[in-house]
Amino acid sequence: MIIDQVGVVGGGLMGTGIARVCALAGADVVICEADAARAESARARTESSLRRAVAAGKIADADCAGALSRLRFTASLEDLADRELVVEAIVEDERAKADLFAALDKVVSAPTAVLASNTSSISITKIAAATTRPERVVGLHFFNPVPALRLVELIPTLHTAAETADRIERFAAEDLGKLVIRSQDRAGFVVNALLTPYLLSAVRMLEAGFASAEDIDRGMVEGCAHPIGPLSLADFVGLDILLAASTSMYEEFRDPGFAPPPLLLRMVESGFLGEKTGRGFFSYSR
C-alpha cells in the first residue's frame, strides 16, 4: 500500500466510515476519540457497520474479520505518533480543528507523516497554520456515507508540497478505490460551493411560503430526476453542518446566496438538526 498506517480523529459517522474503508483496504487504523466512553461507542458503531455490510452481501465475512483485526480504538492522541496519515473528522469548527492540528503536530513523529482535514468548508490554510509542517497538510473531504460514495475532494494549499498532494491522491485513488477531484483552498471547495446555495434556496422557498416541504422535494425529484429532494438532503447532511458550511462560505465571499436563512438559524437553535435528532424539515423515527 502507498500508506498503511492511518489514524482517524473523531469516531462519529464520518470518522468511523473513513476508518472502515481504510481498514478494508488493508491499512492498520487507529481511531482516537475524546474519552474512553466515546472510543467504545466508536468501536460499537464501526463493528455494527461492518456486520451490516456482511449481512447485506456487500463484503465477505473474511473481509469483515480482517478489517476488525486492523482497527484499534483509543482516547489518547499519543497512540497516533507512528501514523503516516492522520485524518481529522471532528466538529465543523475552525478553532477546534486548529487546536487539534497544533496538538497532532507535536505528537505525530513520522518524518513524512501527513495531516489531513475532512472539513467540508473551512480553510485548510488556516488549519495548517497551527502546525510547523504546512507543506504536509491537506484537505481530504470524504462524502457521507463514506463506504458507498466514491468521491473524495483533495485540497492542497499554497504551502502543500506537490509530492504530499500526489501521495495522498494516489492513496485515496489506488489504495481506497476512491474517485479524487482537486479543488483550490476556497470555502466550500467544489461540491459544497455548488450544493449549498441550492439547499439554502429551498429553505428560503419554504420560509416564504411558496410551497410545502413535501412539494418542494417532490418537484426536484420528479421534475429534475434528482434522487432526493433538497430539504430531505439537508436533513440527511445535518442542519447544523449546513449552517456551518453556509456561514463559512458567506464570511469568505459575502455572497448573499451563501447567507443562512433565519429559518435555518432558528431550527438549529431549537435542536432540530435533521435525521440525527429525529426532526428537521421532516420527522424521522429514531
Rank of each mutant, 00 (worst) to 15 (best):
54 V>P: 02
200 L>P: 10
61 D>G: 09
204 R>D: 12
161 A>V: 05
187 A>H: 05
231 L>E: 03
216 I>L: 12
111 P>R: 11
173 A>T: 10
179 L>V: 12
214 E>Y: 14
68 L>K: 04
35 D>F: 12
94 E>I: 11
134 P>C: 08
156 P>Y: 07
263 L>K: 01
96 A>S: 07
16 T>N: 07
28 D>W: 05
9 V>F: 03
254 R>M: 11
29 V>S: 11
186 R>P: 05
244 A>N: 08
41 S>F: 06
59 I>H: 04
275 E>T: 12
175 D>N: 11
60 A>Y: 13
127 I>C: 07
8 V>I: 15
25 A>R: 00
230 P>H: 11
105 D>P: 04
133 R>Q: 13
34 A>N: 13
35 D>C: 13
109 S>R: 15
81 A>T: 05
13 L>W: 07
25 A>T: 04
155 I>H: 00
13 L>R: 01
262 P>S: 10
152 V>M: 05
105 D>L: 02
111 P>V: 10
177 G>P: 12
15 G>N: 03
237 V>W: 02
236 F>S: 14
198 Y>V: 15
20 R>L: 15
261 P>C: 10
192 N>H: 10
275 E>L: 12
7 G>I: 03
267 M>P: 00
214 E>P: 07
183 S>F: 06
209 G>Q: 08
80 L>C: 03
188 G>T: 09
159 H>T: 06
91 V>L: 05
238 G>V: 00
229 G>W: 01
72 R>T: 15
98 A>H: 04
144 N>I: 06
110 A>V: 09
18 I>M: 09
37 A>D: 13
229 G>F: 02
13 L>I: 14
185 D>G: 15
92 E>F: 12
101 F>D: 00
221 V>P: 04
76 S>M: 12
215 D>E: 14
285 S>H: 15
5 Q>V: 07
224 C>R: 14
35 D>I: 12
262 P>M: 12
278 G>Q: 03
171 F>E: 01
229 G>K: 03
23 A>H: 08
87 V>P: 02
23 A>F: 09
259 A>M: 09
194 L>S: 15
204 R>M: 10
118 N>I: 05
274 G>R: 00
140 L>R: 04
172 A>R: 00
251 E>F: 14
